[in-house]
Design a protein around this nucleic acid. Structure first.
Lengths: 224, 224
DNA sequence: CAATAAATATGAGTGCGCTCATAAATAATT
DNA sequence: AATTATTTATGAGCGCACTCATATTTATTG
């Protein structure tokens, strides 16, 4: 009968992650790093999952243990940008005290600036993220979750202004409407070939002025 | 020295198309017919180009002599709907005398009704049509041409209203703005799982009311 | 009617995203 | 430590969209 010299669970100490979890994180980061390099170098279509895997030091099939599809891999970067966008806004600063339209348009503007370095490959996947996906997987659930987070972020902004009487009670549809506007601007931006994307900036400015004027007549709203 | 008993060009008569042109049209129609059947039966992703070709009575590679990509094949149906949408509007009827917002929203509404039968496969390609395509081919030029036609159609509607003073001078951006709205509604519609797409219809109606109210205050516009 | 030229059809071949049976690595148990 | 169980890595294999050298068909020419 052997003597039990070691505890049943060896890796429960606070600073010690199991080797499995450790490798998992290492591999995930290696894949993301390789993918970002190749996407930016060759664009989404010409960067093959084989090469991404190889550059990450893994076998071909392993990539798909970490990301369900190549598209999911690219969407990761979009999601990261959205998370950072919300964090950026919530960081205290002078923007917090600006009028609502300016705050909303600053959000779109900042987003465009953030995704600019990825433009070459983002266009290939951005719009697909909206499509109703037939497969309901944990990963697509994650995406829904992020979407929900973004919408409630916008909803919070609008609700605060509604409470102050700056806005008619738009409710959820208001947030959805802004999300569509946000999307439309990204679409426009992706297709904008003018120098420095000045057409997009002009359109954004025009919309900002329009929205500001609308709000100046707040008393006249008579929504049912 | 042989006697010339037949003319140099045999197929120049008005009703006689050359056998080549004849076959070309026949094959093209066969491909479109087979594609539509399979897309509606299996959806875009599960309908293979092999099967479409086979059903059209052609070899695999032949399909790509007619359509540059599988996506182009599906986009054909979207383009056809857009052409028919314009034709539908331009057919004289009571709609012509309705206020501008109603006419614009009738256009979107009619479009949604027209593409409803294709919804299952249209979602897979619709948004991609907007993406800046890196390959500049005759086919993508065709698509640009259609886009231009749609924009100038909308531009014409807006210009007539601007001339009557019903609208501030929106110019090209106005047409582009409506196009983005149109697109946004289709996106919303594609993702709308409510019974009978009633959420989309409600949103459309809300926008219609909003636009109508805006126009009622036309005197107050002071666009630069 | 040959003979030649031009357009079109063909299908084996290519690299792709992705799957899956299996092997290897790690954790848990005795 | 040895054994068993669980998780993860592997890469040959699959069907796909798409290409391209070649064969076939159609048009033109003498």
């Amino acid at each position: 009968m052997p003597i039990k010299t070691s505890p049943r669970k060896r890796n429960v100490g606070p600073g010690k992650a199991g080797k499995r979890a450790q490798n998992k994180e290492t591999n995930r980061q290696a894949i993301l790093k390789a993918a970002l390099e190749l996407f930016r170098q060759k664009g989404f279509d010409h960067a093959s999952t084989r090469e991404i895997s190889r550059r990450a030091g893994l076998a071909e099939g392993t990539l798909f243990n970490y990301f369900r599809t190549k598209e999911d891999l690219a969407l990761y970067f979009l999601e990261r940008e959205l998370v950072e966008l919300i964090a950026w806004y919530e960081h205290p600063g002078p923007l917090q005290r600006a009028p609502l339209p300016e705050r909303l348009f600053a959000i779109v503007h900042h987003h465009l600036e953030q995704i600019a370095p990825y433009e070459d490959f983002i266009g290939a996947v951005y719009l697909r993220a909206l499509q109703p996906s037939s497969k309901l997987s944990p990963l697509s659930a994650e995406r829904r979750e992020l979407n929900r987070r973004y919408l409630s972020f916008i909803r919070g902004l609008l609700a605060a202004s509604e409470a102050k009487g700056e806005l008619p009670p738009l409710g959820e549809p208001g947030a959805y409407g802004f999300a569509l506007f946000h999307l439309a601007m990204i679409t426009y931006w992706l297709n904008d070939t003018s120098a420095g994307k000045e057409n997009t900036l002009a359109a954004l400015d025009r919309c900002l002025q329009f929205a500001t004027r609308l709000l100046q007549r707040q008393g006249q709203w008579d929504w049912q």
